[in-house]
Design a protein around this nucleic acid. Structure first.
Lengths: 231, 231
DNA sequence: GTTTTTGCACTGACCAGTCAGTTCAAAGAA
DNA sequence: TTCTTTGAACTGACTGGTCAGTGCAAAAAC
């Protein structure tokens, strides 16, 4: 944007369904991808861990390139700038997350489960996602509440995407009489996100040996108010 | 650390009860502080907002000095380095927070309240803290889950301090038979922190016009499992 | 007279972004 | 089959700028 005379061949990304399958640990060689696609993938993987560890500003493009096993120029061949790389990383990751959450809710729906069951399934899906992509989650939490940044708008969109998935279930639950009409949908959704995010990060960071089921049941109990009144 | 020949007169901070009263908006000119103390205070205030907005690496020492209305040299006269300034900021802020949480719990105790009441009071105290020092909270969340950083150890200590305040109440509740012995104290505490943190940040960032009571009641409902089963 | 602050010039390291040149697989020509 | 051409993808040395931290003499505060 600032440089005018350049003609860096930056293709319109965000056009096709650019997957980020295996954002963390590569595998799933499915999906016939071009060479370019593969390079992008490597850059995402490198960037996500580095930025999660050090933060955006503290991570250099040289580092990203080196870890991806690619020349610095390649980064700029594939992304207009460091910020753009980061923004696309965010969008893709959150796309995966919301897809997973909505899928979990719909599955419960199909099985004739209640809305609490749907919420519970979403918690599980959220935990699963975080276990698979811990670095991405770290990065997401860390950047979520920063203001005055270049990718501010992207962040808002992406945040809303996640929260809306939960709010939808809450709204449906209220409409169906399962949830109290007194609940504050927006705040409750935010609180649930925070609950899962922080608990899962604690899990991954400090007691990674525990199973997903284990962690899930602890959060499930909290969700259903089965904390007090134990016998 | 890198520079050896320096003899910057950095006094042993953390010795006295270095308050961070009015970390955000200065007021409360109570507490007879030395001149030095006042300068420190200004630097904390300047740093906390800037770092919350931009992150540590993206914030320059020149900016901090300028916003504090102080010469750059003064920053280095008062703090050994940029990182040290940040670490002390962290320690002081979290000290305030935990004090507030524990005070809330003890107050409930004195009033003969239950442990759920204590938890509820801590949620309120947490919300109050976040409302008073939103920037500090932003900064805390943003840096909490980063690894490989200079102040890593400080961060761990400080995190543990906060969580322990909640875990103590949970443990007491289990011991007293009020909470189910099945609850996972550590994870539940983390989840509660996340719940309050993210909900409060949502509140401050996107609907600051709402009252603390309002937000508190939404979270209180979630804590007590009064979400489902509405009539 | 001692402590603290100021202002400012300076240094050395580091870093985002650039660009002229290289590589190579695939398409086409012979 | 073998040779030639094309251009997308990639490379890495280089540039212009920024920033943490230093040094110090003079002023201000106490």
């Amino acid at each position: 944007m600032t440089s005018l005379g350049t003609s860096t061949p930056v293709p319109a990304t965000g056009t096709g369904p650019v997957t980020i399958r295996a954002m963390e640990s590569s595998s799933t060689p499915s999906g016939g991808s071009t060479r370019r696609e593969a390079t992008r993938q490597k850059l995402y993987e490198a960037a996500v861990t580095l930025i999660a560890e050090q933060g955006f500003s503290a991570t250099t493009v040289d580092e990203i390139a080196e870890r991806a096993g690619v020349a610095k120029g390649t980064v700029y061949y594939n992304f207009a700038s460091k910020s753009v790389l980061f923004e696309e990383l965010l969008r893709h990751g959150v796309g995966l997350l919301t897809a997973s959450l909505r899928e979990a809710a719909e599955q419960t729906e199909r099985d004739g489960g209640s809305k609490v069951d749907a919420l519970d399934a979403m918690i599980r899906a959220g935990l699963g996602f975080i276990a698979r992509y811990p670095s991405f989650t770290q990065l997401y939490v860390a950047e979520l509440y920063r203001t005055n940044r270049a990718w501010q708008s992207t962040l808002m969109v992406v945040r809303q995407q996640v929260n809306a998935a939960i709010e939808d279930v809450l709204h449906a639950g209220v409409a169906g009489g399962e949830f109290s009409p007194e609940i504050d949908v927006r705040l409750t959704a935010a609180a649930l996100v925070g609950m899962v995010l922080v608990a899962a990060l604690d899990w991954q960071s400090f007691q990674p040996e525990r199973s997903l089921d284990d962690v899930h049941s602890a959060l499930s109990r909290l969700l259903q108010g089965r904390v007090s009144g134990g016998h």
